[in-house]
């Protein structure tokens, strides 16, 4: 660059030089924004970012983070664990190449997939029954009106559950669109307890805590969509192709953690408590991870159910014909549905 500039100085006038400088800065800007980001380049990377959200829905990843299993297997590589607040934020990170391994709910994944984000499911983390909690409403019809309903985002799995329930019970998928408010789980829980929200569509362990506060369940996702995956791990195709070894190792470690969470909750709880922080005790964590509403499993299921409904109500245009296209081949994704 400096060389070009010097040449220009010798051969051209100041106006042309200014033009060149503008062009050069434009090129720099383009390079920064374009597909040249290493995270999207399809090269083998030394630093790998993993994006996930708060909550025990990500317990297998928390365990891996705490035990540093990846760092032990790949001493030459660096792993960055980034806790973000919404599936959309993680997806934006993946699109811009800041995050290579993304963990999140079905909603943001399908929205990304349908809009051409080249990613697929690597492995599932858990199934969960997601509940719409309310302090006073007994049914969806009670919530209709001006009461606000909190959930992580309008594209979140919770939002899709609410729309399907609204269509099934009230005949209109958009019945609550104007009442939906995007909020992280902790804020939503506070808002429901303080009476600012009429409802909160959440996840374990927040729904258990709300039950203890006297809230009741208005809708549960298993009734709406059948049993389904809550969170999974998604990886961009170029990254998968160029970093297969790390990706497979990551998948195997997830499977290992999932198995331990399921078979030995007592043994894993203290480690989870340590990584979660905030004064939570091992006993509390154990209670959370053994809740009936969450079960740790690597098999992705329910994706097509969600995708078809989302297509039906116009949230996405493109969906695959077969759930197999959602998933990378592998030992845990054989029966991807």
């Amino acid at each position: 660059m400096i060389g070009t500039d010097a040449t220009a100085h010798r051969t051209t006038g100041p106006a042309a030089r200014r033009g060149l400088a503008a062009l050069a800065s434009a090129v720099v800007l383009c390079t920064a924004l374009a597909a040249c980001n290493p995270g999207l380049s399809g090269r083998e990377l030394d630093t790998i970012s993993i994006g996930y959200q708060p909550g025990i829905g990500y317990a297998p990843l928390l365990l891996m983070r705490q035990e540093r299993v990846l760092e032990e297997r790949f001493p030459d590589k660096e792993f960055e664990w980034r806790e973000l607040n919404s599936g959309a934020a993680i997806r934006d990170g993946a699109i811009s190449g800041e995050i290579q391994i993304a963990a999140g709910g079905i909603g943001p994944f399908i929205v990304g997939y349908g809009n051409g984000v080249p990613w697929k499911v690597l492995v599932g983390l858990d199934d969960a029954n997601l509940r719409l909690m309310s302090m006073d409403a007994e049914s969806l019809a009670d919530l209709k009106g001006s009461a606000k309903i909190a959930m992580p985002g309008p594209d979140s799995i919770q939002a899709i559950v609410l729309r399907k329930a609204a269509r099934d019970e009230l005949g209109s998928a958009g019945a609550f669109d104007s009442q939906m408010v995007a909020m992280g789980h902790p804020d939503g829980m506070q808002a429901l307890i303080s009476g600012q929200m009429g409802g909160h569509l959440t996840a374990p362990p927040f729904q258990e805590r709300l039950t203890k506060e006297g809230a009741n369940t208005v809708v549960q996702s298993y009734d709406v969509f059948g049993e389904h995956t809550f969170n999974s791990v998604y990886v961009l195709e170029p990254f998968y192709g160029a970093n297969t070894e790390v990706v497979h190792a990551f998948r195997d470690e997830v499977a290992d953690s999932v198995e331990r969470l399921r078979d030995d909750p007592k043994g894993t709880a203290p480690e989870l408590a340590a990584v979660m922080g905030g004064g939570v005790t091992a006993a509390e964590v154990e209670e959370q991870i053994t809740s009936d509403d969450i079960s740790y499993t690597t098999r992705p299921r329910g994706f097509m159910e969600y995708a078809r409904f989302m297509q039906e109500i116009g949230l996405v245009e493109e969906i695959p014909d077969d759930a197999g296209e959602f998933c990378y081949p592998g030992p845990h994704t054989k029966d991807c549905t």
Binding site: R91, M180, A182, L315
Partner: peptide, 20 residues
Amino acid sequence: GAAGGQGGLGFFINDARYFL
């Protein structure tokens, strides 16, 4: 950060971003 049908331009942008 609300979603849905009663939002203004800020919601419009946020919503579009959520759905890419």
